[in-house]
Protein backbone atom coordinates (compact mmCIF):
# COMPACT_ATOMS: atom_id res chain seq x y z
CA UNK A 1 0.00 0.00 0.00
CA UNK A 2 1.32 3.40 -1.01
CA UNK A 3 2.64 5.69 1.74
CA UNK A 4 0.62 8.85 2.32
CA UNK A 5 2.39 12.22 1.93
CA UNK A 6 1.55 15.82 2.87
CA UNK A 7 3.52 18.49 0.90
CA UNK A 8 4.17 21.77 2.79
CA UNK A 9 5.63 24.61 0.68
CA UNK A 10 4.66 28.22 -0.08
CA UNK A 11 5.53 27.94 -3.78
CA UNK A 12 2.63 26.42 -5.84
CA UNK A 13 4.90 25.44 -8.72
CA UNK A 14 7.03 23.34 -6.40
CA UNK A 15 4.03 21.69 -4.78
CA UNK A 16 2.50 20.67 -8.11
CA UNK A 17 5.77 19.37 -9.51
CA UNK A 18 6.56 17.47 -6.30
CA UNK A 19 3.10 15.94 -6.26
CA UNK A 20 3.44 14.61 -9.83
CA UNK A 21 6.95 13.36 -9.09
CA UNK A 22 6.10 11.54 -5.85
CA UNK A 23 2.90 10.09 -7.24
CA UNK A 24 4.80 8.81 -10.25
CA UNK A 25 7.00 6.93 -7.82
CA UNK A 26 4.14 5.34 -5.93
CA UNK A 27 3.47 7.77 -3.08
CA UNK A 28 -0.03 8.86 -2.27
CA UNK A 29 -0.06 12.66 -1.93
CA UNK A 30 -3.04 13.21 0.34
CA UNK A 31 -2.73 16.97 0.83
CA UNK A 32 -0.78 20.25 0.43
CA UNK A 33 -0.19 23.23 2.76
CA UNK A 34 1.35 26.67 1.99
CA UNK A 35 2.37 27.88 5.47
CA UNK A 36 3.20 26.59 8.94
CA UNK A 37 -0.20 26.99 10.57
CA UNK A 38 -2.13 25.25 7.83
CA UNK A 39 0.53 22.54 7.78
CA UNK A 40 0.03 21.76 11.49
CA UNK A 41 -3.69 21.68 11.02
CA UNK A 42 -3.43 19.38 7.98
CA UNK A 43 -1.04 16.97 9.74
CA UNK A 44 -3.35 16.66 12.71
CA UNK A 45 -6.30 16.22 10.44
CA UNK A 46 -4.84 13.90 7.76
CA UNK A 47 -2.17 12.11 9.87
CA UNK A 48 0.06 11.44 6.83
CA UNK A 49 2.77 8.88 7.10
CA UNK A 50 5.26 11.33 5.57
CA UNK A 51 5.39 15.14 5.75
CA UNK A 52 7.59 16.82 3.08
CA UNK A 53 8.23 20.09 4.96
CA UNK A 54 9.89 23.20 3.45
CA UNK A 55 12.20 24.93 5.94
CA UNK A 56 11.27 28.45 4.91
CA UNK A 57 7.62 29.29 5.30
CA UNK A 58 5.91 32.66 5.40
CA UNK A 59 4.69 32.52 9.01
CA UNK A 60 7.15 30.22 10.78
CA UNK A 61 10.05 28.09 9.74
CA UNK A 62 9.89 24.32 9.17
CA UNK A 63 11.83 23.58 12.37
CA UNK A 64 9.15 25.27 14.47
CA UNK A 65 6.42 23.28 12.66
CA UNK A 66 8.37 20.06 13.32
CA UNK A 67 8.79 20.87 17.02
CA UNK A 68 5.07 21.61 17.35
CA UNK A 69 3.76 18.41 15.80
CA UNK A 70 6.35 16.29 17.58
CA UNK A 71 5.25 17.87 20.82
CA UNK A 72 1.68 16.95 19.93
CA UNK A 73 2.73 13.28 19.61
CA UNK A 74 2.14 13.05 15.92
CA UNK A 75 3.73 9.93 14.44
CA UNK A 76 4.26 11.23 10.90
CA UNK A 77 7.76 10.96 9.53
CA UNK A 78 9.01 14.44 8.75
CA UNK A 79 11.33 15.02 5.80
CA UNK A 80 12.68 18.56 5.65
CA UNK A 81 13.47 20.15 2.30
CA UNK A 82 14.79 23.43 1.00
CA UNK A 83 16.28 24.98 -2.08
CA UNK A 84 19.30 25.78 0.13
CA UNK A 85 21.96 23.24 0.97
CA UNK A 86 21.44 21.18 4.16
CA UNK A 87 24.78 22.40 5.52
CA UNK A 88 23.37 25.94 5.61
CA UNK A 89 21.24 24.92 8.59
CA UNK A 90 24.03 23.47 10.71
CA UNK A 91 22.73 21.22 13.48
CA UNK A 92 19.16 22.49 13.30
CA UNK A 93 18.07 19.57 11.11
CA UNK A 94 19.52 16.94 13.41
CA UNK A 95 17.98 18.59 16.46
CA UNK A 96 14.55 19.03 14.89
CA UNK A 97 13.43 15.38 15.25
CA UNK A 98 12.93 15.04 11.50
CA UNK A 99 13.91 11.85 9.66
CA UNK A 100 16.20 13.77 7.41
CA UNK A 101 16.72 16.45 4.78
CA UNK A 102 16.35 16.29 1.02
CA UNK A 103 17.48 19.27 -1.09
CA UNK A 104 14.62 20.34 -3.38
CA UNK A 105 16.75 19.86 -6.45
CA UNK A 106 17.33 16.17 -5.49
CA UNK A 107 13.77 15.35 -4.44
CA UNK A 108 12.54 11.93 -5.49
CA UNK A 109 10.48 9.13 -4.08
CA UNK A 110 13.59 7.01 -3.78
CA UNK A 111 15.32 9.68 -1.71
CA UNK A 112 12.37 9.80 0.71
CA UNK A 113 12.13 6.02 0.89
CA UNK A 114 15.81 5.90 1.70
CA UNK A 115 15.30 8.23 4.66
CA UNK A 116 12.28 6.19 5.89
CA UNK A 117 14.06 2.92 6.02
Amino acid sequence: MAQTVLIVDDHPSFRSTARILLESEGFDVIGEAEDGASAIEAIQRLAPEVVLLDVQLPDMDGFAVARTIMADGVKSAIVLTSSRDGCDFGSLIAESGARGFVPKGELSGAAISELLR
Binding site: T17, I20, S24, G105, L107, S108
Partner: peptide, 22 residues
Protein backbone atom coordinates in the same frame (compact mmCIF):
# COMPACT_ATOMS: atom_id res chain seq x y z
CA UNK B 1 16.82 35.05 -5.39
CA UNK B 2 15.52 32.45 -3.03
CA UNK B 3 11.90 33.19 -3.53
CA UNK B 4 12.10 33.86 -7.19
CA UNK B 5 14.61 32.48 -9.59
CA UNK B 6 15.88 29.78 -7.23
CA UNK B 7 12.42 28.31 -6.65
CA UNK B 8 11.72 28.35 -10.35
CA UNK B 9 14.98 26.63 -11.10
CA UNK B 10 14.26 23.99 -8.44
CA UNK B 11 10.87 23.36 -9.98
CA UNK B 12 12.50 23.27 -13.41
CA UNK B 13 14.95 20.68 -12.17
CA UNK B 14 12.17 18.53 -10.78
CA UNK B 15 10.13 18.97 -13.96
CA UNK B 16 13.01 17.88 -16.16
CA UNK B 17 13.57 14.79 -14.02
CA UNK B 18 9.85 14.05 -14.19
CA UNK B 19 9.77 14.50 -17.94
CA UNK B 20 12.65 12.09 -18.31
CA UNK B 21 10.80 9.46 -16.35
CA UNK B 22 7.64 10.13 -18.34
Amino acid sequence: LHDGAQQRLVSLSLALRLARSQ
